[in-house]
C-alpha cells in the first residue's frame, strides 16, 4: 500500500506540484494588486507576482540529477575515466580523436543545470529591486502630498467634490 501511494506521489503529484504552487503564488500576487487598498501592500503583491514568474523561469532549467552549472576540477579523474570508457566503446572514434583527447575532457550536458534561465533571471532580480525602489519613492511622494497611502482616501481627495 505504501508503495502504491509513493508511486502515485512520484508519478502524478511531484512532476507538476511545483507549477501548481507557482500559479497559486502568481494568483495571490495578482489578487493583492487588484484588491488591496494600501499602496505598500500592492507593491508587496507585485513583488510576489514577480518572484512567481522568476521561479517558473528557473524551474524550466532544472534537470533531475544535475549539478550546479560550475565545472569543478576536483572531480577531473572521474570525467577522464568516463571519457575513456566512452572511447573504449567506440574504438574507431578513439583513434581518430586521440590527439585532442588530453586537452579537453568530454562534458556531459545532462550533468549540469541549464545556465541560460539563471542568467536571465539574475539580472531580472536586480532590476526588480531597483524598480521596487522607484515605486516606493513615488509612494512616498504620494504620501507627502495626500497624507495617506490608502487608495480610497486618495480617490476621495481627488474627486471634484472632495474635501480639499
Amino acid at each position: 500500500m505504501d508503495i502504491i501511494i509513493a508511486s502515485f506521489l512520484e508519478d502524478s503529484i511531484v512532476p507538476k506540484f511545483n507549477y501548481w504552487i507557482y500559479v497559486i503564488l502568481m494568483m495571490i500576487g495578482l489578487y493583492a494588486m487588484i484588491t488591496k487598498n494600501n499602496l505598500i501592500k500592492k507593491l508587496i503583491g507585485m513583488a510576489i507576482f514577480q518572484t512567481a514568474i522568476i521561479l517558473l523561469y528557473v524551474s524550466v532549467g532544472v534537470k533531475a540529477d544535475a549539478n550546479i552549472p560550475i565545472i569543478s576540477h576536483h572531480g577531473e579523474k572521474d570525467h577522464v575515466e568516463h571519457a575513456q570508457n566512452e572511447n573504449l566503446d567506440s574504438a574507431s572514434e578513439a583513434s581518430s580523436h586521440h590527439g585532442s583527447k588530453k586537452e579537453h575532457h568530454v562534458i556531459d550536458k545532462n550533468k549540469f543545470a541549464n545556465p541560460l534561465p539563471h542568467v536571465l533571471m539574475l539580472t531580472a532580480i536586480v532590476v526588480g529591486v531597483s524598480t521596487l525602489g522607484l515605486a516606493l519613492a513615488i509612494s512616498q511622494k504620494v504620501h507627502g502630498s495626500f497624507g495617506t497611502l490608502e487608495e480610497d482616501e486618495i480617490l476621495d481627495q481627488l474627486r471634484p467634490g472632495g474635501y480639499d
Binding site: 522568476i54 528557473v58 524551474s59 532549467g61 532544472v62 544535475a66 549539478n67 550546479i68 552549472p69 560550475i70 543545470a113 534561465p117 539563471h118 533571471m121 539574475l122 532580480i125 536586480v126
Partner: peptide, 11 residues
Amino acid sequence: EMGAVDVAFTE
C-alpha cells in the same frame, strides 16, 4: 536547492 546558486546568492 534547484541548483541555481548564482540566482540564490543574488536573491
